[in-house]
């Protein structure tokens, strides 16, 4: 299948302090991995597209090093004012002139947790889609998606062209090999301007929520620990 994966560069949320380190969105890394696995042993391409600042090239190279074919970099110096709606419109403009059997996105951005750009893009392109995929399989003209629903997994066959948003529970993305890294360094990454779009939502401020206070912590024998806990649950928390 001819795939294109939409990838985003996000701040590293794992770090306990804001380091400014930027990484490939974990959900998008899983999408790249899955496309590579589905296409293993074929000559079909796995292309990439990223909207972001010039400095996001390093993230594109990381995904190329995993084994992706070619990438387009839509340069936008700040993602700040762009919500999922705006991103979906820029991507839709890109796909107006590029044909794929399947477009993959992450199920959400790790930083904003919006989870919208993929399904918005599918609707703009008028193609069937499935969200929160944990498995993918090519079957003739169809892409068979296993998606995680509220109370179980649903297996849906999508007619191509289609779009799938991927969970990181799908796989463990490969670590690029040295050969992959060298190859990615040599690849040309064409830049492109973003279509002009507008956001429909606006973040006015971000702040630390009132944190939870750490409570009490006991060490000792199991019997002691349990009797202290049970007494607190009954007398202080009132939950028993």
């Amino acid at each position: 299948m001819k795939f294109c994966v939409c990838i985003k560069q996000v701040p590293d949320v794992q770090a306990s302090v804001q380091t400014g380190r930027m990484v490939l969105n974990a959900y998008d890394a899983s999408a790249v991995e899955e496309a590579l696995v589905v296409n293993e042993g074929t000559d079909d391409v796995v292309d990439l597209v990223l909207i972001g600042p010039s400095s996001a090239t390093e993230t594109i190279r990381k995904a190329l090093a995993m084994g992706a074919s070619n990438a387009t970099h839509i340069v936008v110096e700040s993602l700040g004012g762009l919500d999922s709606h705006a991103i979906a419109h820029i991507l839709a403009d890109h796909f107006a002139s590029h044909e794929y059997d399947a477009i993959l996105t992450g199920k959400q951005s790790q930083d904003s947790d919006s989870g919208l750009a993929g399904s918005m893009l599918a609707e703009l392109l008028g193609i069937p889609f499935a969200t929160n995929a944990v498995g993918l399989k090519a079957e003739g003209e169809d892409l068979v998606v296993t998606r995680q629903g509220d109370s179980g997994q649903e297996i849906v066959a999508l007619k191509t062209p289609c779009l799938v948003t991927c969970s990181n529970d799908m796989n463990n993305p490969r670590i690029p090999s040295l050969k992959g890294i060298m190859g990615a360094k040599r690849k040309q990454i064409p830049n492109k301007e973003a279509a002009s779009v507008s956001a429909l939502t606006d973040v006015s401020k971000s702040f630390s929520p009132p944190g939870r206070e750490a409570g009490v912590k006991w060490e000792g024998e199991a019997e002691e620990l349990v009797s202290q806990l049970v007494s607190k649950l009954q007398n202080e928390a009132g939950v028993l």
């Binding site: 947790d113 919006s114 399904s119 918005m120 599918a122 969200t131 629903g149």
Partner: peptide, 18 residues
């Protein structure tokens, strides 16, 4: 979550998710 984005495009809505 499965329908929110597409529905918003179809009905011209803004979304504040989650």
């Amino acid at each position: 979550k499965d329908v929110l984005g597409a529905l918003a495009i179809r009905t011209d809505a803004a979304v504040l998710p989650d």
